[in-house]
Simulated scan of single mutants.
Amino acid sequence: MSEHVIHATDADFDSQVLQSSEPVLVDFWAQWCGPCKMIAPALDELATTYAGRAKVVKVDIDKNQAVALKYHVRSIPMLLLFKDGQVQATQIGAVGKAQLAQIIDKAL
């Protein structure tokens, strides 16, 4: 796992994501989710590639239900791109690294 991936909680989601000066790709996931595990290596690579320009944040929905409810997470993996505290893009389901990079690039 990349040291650049941030694990946010209900308690620090606002400071890690909403108040970030950089675009933030948030991965809502769970330990038991197979597709979530499939995209994890791509997210690790993106976190390293975009370090200093954008952030990759993971939120475990089993441990952080308040944030998951707030953003209406009904199926996972669900990825939201935040910029200036607002959702700019949504991706539901496992997709490739190139598609996730496009989402980040649009926000830069």
Rank of each mutant, 00 (worst) to 15 (best):
M1F: 12
S2N: 12
S2W: 07
E3Q: 14
V5C: 14
V5F: 15
V5D: 15
I6K: 13
I6N: 07
H7A: 10
H7R: 05
T9E: 12
D10S: 11
D10K: 15
D10W: 13
A11R: 04
A11T: 07
F13I: 14
F13G: 03
S15F: 05
Q16G: 05
S20K: 02
S20Q: 03
S21R: 12
E22V: 05
E22A: 02
V24P: 01
L25I: 10
V26F: 08
V26S: 07
D27R: 02
D27W: 02
D27H: 01
D27G: 03
D27C: 03
D27S: 02
F28K: 01
F28G: 00
W29V: 02
A30T: 01
Q31L: 10
Q31Y: 05
Q31R: 10
W32C: 11
W32M: 11
C33W: 07
G34Y: 01
G34L: 08
C36L: 07
C36Q: 06
K37D: 05
K37N: 06
M38V: 12
M38G: 01
I39S: 03
I39C: 04
A40S: 11
A40W: 01
P41L: 09
A42T: 09
D44L: 06
E45W: 01
A47T: 11
T48F: 09
T48K: 15
T48W: 05
G52I: 15
R53H: 10
R53D: 14
R53V: 07
R53F: 06
K55H: 06
V56M: 00
K58R: 12
V59G: 00
D60Y: 07
K63T: 14
K63L: 14
N64F: 04
Q65S: 13
Q65A: 10
V67F: 12
A68W: 09
A68Y: 07
L69R: 14
Y71Q: 14
H72M: 12
H72T: 13
H72D: 15
H72K: 11
V73Y: 02
R74H: 07
I76D: 00
I76T: 02
I76S: 05
I76M: 08
P77T: 01
M78T: 10
L79A: 04
L79G: 02
L80D: 02
L80G: 00
L80R: 01
L81T: 13
F82K: 01
F82D: 00
K83L: 06
K83R: 09
G85C: 01
Q86R: 00
Q86K: 03
Q86T: 09
Q88V: 10
A89E: 13
A89I: 04
T90K: 08
T90I: 10
G93E: 04
G93K: 06
A94L: 11
A94G: 10
V95R: 04
K97S: 11
K97A: 14
K97H: 09
A98D: 15
Q99P: 00
A101F: 07
Q102E: 15
Q102S: 13
Q102Y: 02
I103T: 09
I103R: 00
I104E: 11
A107W: 08
L108N: 05
L108T: 02
